[in-house]
């Protein structure tokens, strides 16, 4: 039974909130139980930001992820330091190796090092690093189908932002490819 608990974390502006929202939206498209819970307060304003996403087959109790994350996606060093401990044994941690030189400390979880910023720059848009990470996560977890994420992107990038859909889809694909 699917019960994915994902922490997305990084600097404000790295798109960690929207990464989590897209995953949540994709889960909803598939009629799964979903919740998205952001950190809020002064940390939103320029510091580190994070959100908890749950995608599950059965009803979600608490939307808070304590120390039972199935995966942590960390975009910067403070996030690695803060959230590595919250991954459950046998869980995954996806590390943005473009910005984080450090390795994961724990050996009871699997770490993946993804140069998300470099890949995003190759695609010509530094802002899609979050999508590279999300693509990698979907490939590894199969939490939702990639098509559901495409649907979510269409919802988020409606109207004047529609031209951004293609590069975001490409970023998802490149992230998936990197960990395949």
């Amino acid at each position: 039974m699917l019960n994915e608990k994902v922490i997305c974390a990084g600097f404000g502006g790295q798109g960690v909130m929207s990464m989590g929202q897209l995953l949540t939206y994709a889960g909803m498209v598939e009629d799964k139980q979903v919740s998205w819970l952001p950190s809020y307060g002064p940390e939103m304003r320029g510091g580190t930001a994070n959100c908890n996403v749950i995608v599950a087959d059965s009803l979600i109790g608490s939307p808070i992820i304590n120390d039972d994350a199935t995966c942590a996606i960390v975009m910067n060093l403070p996030s690695l330091d803060k959230f590595e401990v919250d991954v459950a044994p046998k869980g995954k941690i996806l590390i943005n190796s473009s910005l984080i030189e450090k390795k994961a400390k724990r050996d009871d979880i699997t770490a993946y090092y993804i140069p998300a910023n470099e890949i995003a720059l190759e695609l010509g848009n530094a802002r899609v690093a979050n999508m590279v990470m999300l693509g990698a996560y979907i490939e590894l977890s199969k939490a939702v189908k990639i098509e559901s994420l495409h649907k979510a992107l269409q919802k988020v990038f409606g109207g004047s932002k529609a031209h951004l859909i293609a590069v975001n889809e490409e970023a998802l694909a490149r992230g998936a490819e990197f960990v395949r």
């Binding site: 929202q21 909803m28 979903v34 919740s35 998205w36 819970l37 952001p38 809020y40 939307p63």
Partner: peptide, 10 residues
């Protein structure tokens, strides 16, 4: 509470 106000659910 802050959690209900800030979170997203379908």
């Amino acid at each position: 509470d802050g959690m209900i106000g800030q979170m997203m659910e379908p």
